[in-house]
């Protein structure tokens, strides 16, 4: 198998005396979609946040695109241009229009000319059916529309990998579909993705692999098909039974 895009080795994180992540190791290959599953409090959100430098960790090693990550501010500033992240609470900047939200990082961080970024941003918006919202403010959008803009905002940086942290958890049920469809399309375009989600059907159909976290430990690392047809641990079985899908 080709070299992994991201590899995590023996990652440990504690918050004061609480150990949240214990000896986490896994690889993600280019084009792969990995779903992180687990109960709330299992550490999955913490794990995905450490992969973008939003949470510090105490032990272990991260490698991205063949480079070992030295976990300091400067490195993360570099890496965040290559790793996009979308959050549960959308967090569009309310003081900027939709278009300005999308253009901010490409022009200010990647220093690309706005004349080049803006048309591309509009195209991306059009591709998810939001062309007419470019000049509106986030407050004029529904939750589902905001989340789709947040994904576009991250994609505008041309990331090599995308992290999704429970992106549909705050949405009204009728809004979930549009956001998930967008993620399915991304997967089809071979985007490398790590997805923390409670949408089991989505995980089953779209994810190549499932990582199951239990109390800070990865207790299963297997294909989606295997995970859902024959849950490898009692805990995973219980979890799936409780999800009601």
């Amino acid at each position: 198998m080709a070299e992994a895009l991201l590899s995590v080795r023996h990652l440990e994180k504690a918050y004061q005396k609480n150990v949240i992540l214990k000896d986490i190791s896994f690889d993600v290959h280019k084009g792969e979609v990995v779903a992180l599953l687990g109960r709330s409090g299992s550490g999955k959100s913490t794990l995905i946040r450490t992969l973008n430098g939003l949470e510090p960790f105490q032990k272990g090693e991260l490698t991205f695109a063949g480079q070992t990550i030295v976990p300091n501010a400067a490195t993360w500033l570099q890496l965040r241009q290559k790793i996009g992240m979308v959050f549960q609470s959308y967090d569009l900047f309310p003081n900027l229009t939709v278009l300005d939200n999308i253009c901010l990082a490409p022009t200010k961080v990647a220093k690309r000319p706005r004349a080049q970024v803006a048309p591309e941003a509009k195209e991306l918006l059009a591709s998810v059916g939001l062309a007419e919202f470019a000049q509106r403010y986030p407050r004029q959008l529904s939750g589902g529309q905001k989340q789709r803009v947040a994904i576009v905002r991250a994609l505008a940086m041309h990331p090599e990998m995308m992290l999704f942290d429970e992106v549909t958890a705050s949405l009204d049920p009728e809004m979930v579909r549009g956001v998930l469809d967008m993620m399915v399309d991304l997967a089809k375009q071979d985007m490398t993705m790590i997805v923390v989600t409670h949408e089991m059907n989505f995980a089953r159909q779209v994810a190549d692999r499932i990582l199951f976290l239990d109390d800070g430990l990865i207790t299963a690392d297997t294909t989606a098909e295997a995970f859902f047809t024959a849950p490898p641990t009692a805990s995973a079985k219980e979890f799936l039974a409780s999800m009601n899908f």
Binding site: G53, Q81, F93, N95, L96, K108, V109, R153
Partner: peptide, 30 residues
């Protein structure tokens, strides 16, 4: 300003100064 605003700014790769200029100051002033 919510923590989420700062984190999504960081996740986009904004430096502290950029974060202050485009997120913290405009929203904080308001």
């Amino acid at each position: 300003i919510s923590k989420g605003q700062l984190e999504s700014g960081r996740a986009l790769g904004l430096t502290n100064v950029q974060l202050a200029r485009y997120v913290v100051v405009p929203q904080g002033l308001a």
